[in-house]
Amino acid sequence: MLFAFTDEHDMFRDTVRGIFANQCSAEAIRESWDSADGRVRGLWSTLAEVGVLAIMAPTEAGGLGMDEVALVRVLEEAGYGGVPEPLVEHVAVAVPALATAGASEMLVSAISGESTCTVALATGGPNVVAQVAADLVVAEHSGSLLAVDSGALTVAPKDSIDQSRRLAEISFDPDAATLLAGADVALASDRAVLGTAAQCVGVARRLLDFTVEYVKERRQFGKPVGSYQAVKHHLANVRLAIEFSAPLVYRAAWSVAHSDDAAVRGRDVSMAKATASDAVDHSCRAALQCHGAIGYTYEYDLQIWLKRGWSLSGAYGTASQHRDRVAGTLGLLG
């Protein structure tokens, strides 16, 4: 029994944090908005090199053979870093699905970074992220998961307020796709929800750090605005929201990794996402309010995390949708 991350988890987290800080600056993110595929140059291959893409692949397939507990730590950092790559879709959902199905060629290509995967799950609604960057879509169809080659898709792109999210509605001919036999749709959905919850926590942490730094510097009436109690209490509330959402994400990660009971797993994942969505919504509001007008501008980098927060809060289910799911497991839906 160990109610803590291991040293290995912490070291991996630190490595990833360093990579995002170096290779995924706000400037690099803004450059990615102007690119055709929406990607940060060179980042994907670095993530492949250090094994991030292979966290959830078994060691015998060349993966790290780690589990969701290691994964959420990394995805939290991706949220903190504002990383625009489809990490939840690729690392948390597609790679383990390919591994379960024994789709070894597709798996090797995915963990080496040669290919990029995204997913199309009912829980995610009609909008598929990063389709333009993806070579492969792991798509839910009639209770199964299929692997669909990007070339076989009919694509209708859509805008998001978050320029890092290149959305598209897709359709395809299921007969031209590969069945990922044995890959569980419910588990895939839970992983997508869990990974997104972890990112929400990371985004919330970044918004808080951003704002704390700002209110220490910004002076009005001869004092830093961060010395006023109204501002202090806003930010204390953000810290509270983060402090009590992160443990639910870690708990849910452990459940997905270790529980055979799909109801427990689903309940824990939904508790995490409901709380993390609320936490990031709260962080966005408080961060913008405490910044004032400067936070409302396109030029100031806060907007990167505000928009990520808005979009991830609803991605793979809003807080209220996940509360309803928890209500069901608690016997409250009649």
Partner: peptide
């Protein structure tokens, strides 16, 4: 119903946070 669910979620959040802090 949302309030009841929230109460339940918060108690769980407090539980796990406490265990992590205790560790």
């Amino acid at each position: 119903r949302d309030e009841v669910v929230d109460a339940w979620i918060r108690a769980e959040a407090y539980r796990w946070q406490t265990y992590f802090v205790a560790a």
